[in-house]
Amino acid sequence: MFADDDMPKPKKLHEIGCDLTFLSAGDLEERISLLKEEISRLEADKVAKTSSKKAAESFFR
């Protein structure tokens, strides 16, 4: 079997707080789009988890 250390690590597309000096306007726009998609994904998961919690709370009342 292969060790996890042998597997290539995925490249980070953006790191919060990183230096933006050498990024072009196009690069910045691409990162903004990626971050907006991630925010949407996080918000959808939050809604799903909140709904589940509310359903469980109402069931056990």
Rank of each mutant, 00 (worst) to 15 (best):
K11I: 13
S51T: 03
L13I: 12
L34I: 05
A25M: 09
T21L: 09
H14M: 02
E43M: 03
G17R: 08
I39Y: 09
D6S: 14
D4R: 11
L34T: 03
K54F: 04
K9Q: 15
F60N: 11
E37K: 14
R61D: 11
S40G: 09
K12N: 05
F59K: 07
G26H: 03
T50D: 04
A44G: 09
F60H: 14
K46W: 01
S40E: 13
L23V: 04
R31N: 08
E57L: 13
F2C: 06
R41G: 10
L35Q: 12
L23M: 12
E15D: 01
E15R: 01
E57N: 09
T21S: 15
E29R: 10
K36H: 05
L34N: 07
F59V: 03
L23Y: 15
L35G: 03
S51P: 01
K9A: 14
D45V: 11
E37I: 12
A3E: 13
R61A: 09
K53L: 11
F59A: 06
T50A: 07
H14K: 01
E29A: 14
D27A: 05
F2G: 06
T50K: 04
S51C: 01
E29N: 08
M7P: 00
F22I: 05
S51K: 04
D6G: 09
F22Y: 12
I39V: 11
E43I: 00
K36N: 07
L34Q: 06
I16C: 07
R41Q: 15
R61L: 12
A56L: 14
T50W: 00
C18I: 04
A25N: 08
P10Y: 08
D4S: 12
S52Y: 07
F22C: 06
A3G: 14
E38P: 03
P8C: 10
T50M: 06
D4E: 11
K46D: 01
A48S: 08
S40L: 10
V47C: 00
K49C: 07
E30V: 07
S51M: 01
G26Y: 01
H14W: 06
F22P: 02
C18D: 10
K12W: 02
S58A: 05
S52A: 13
K53N: 06
E38A: 15
D6W: 15
L28Y: 05
I16G: 02
S33R: 12
R61S: 13
D45Q: 15
A3I: 10
E43P: 00
E38M: 10
A48L: 04
F22S: 09
F60S: 14
G26K: 00
E43A: 02
K53W: 06
E29Y: 06
E29L: 14
K54C: 03
C18M: 15
E30R: 10
E37Y: 11
C18S: 11
S51D: 05
K46T: 00
A48W: 01
R41F: 13
L13D: 15
K9T: 15
D19N: 15
F2Q: 08
A3F: 13
K46M: 02
D6H: 11
R61F: 11
D5R: 13
A55D: 01
S33Y: 07
H14Q: 02
D45M: 13
P8G: 12
A56N: 07
D27F: 02
A56H: 07
A48H: 03
A56V: 06
E30M: 08
I16A: 10
L28E: 07
I16V: 10
G17Y: 11
D5F: 11
F22R: 13
F2V: 09
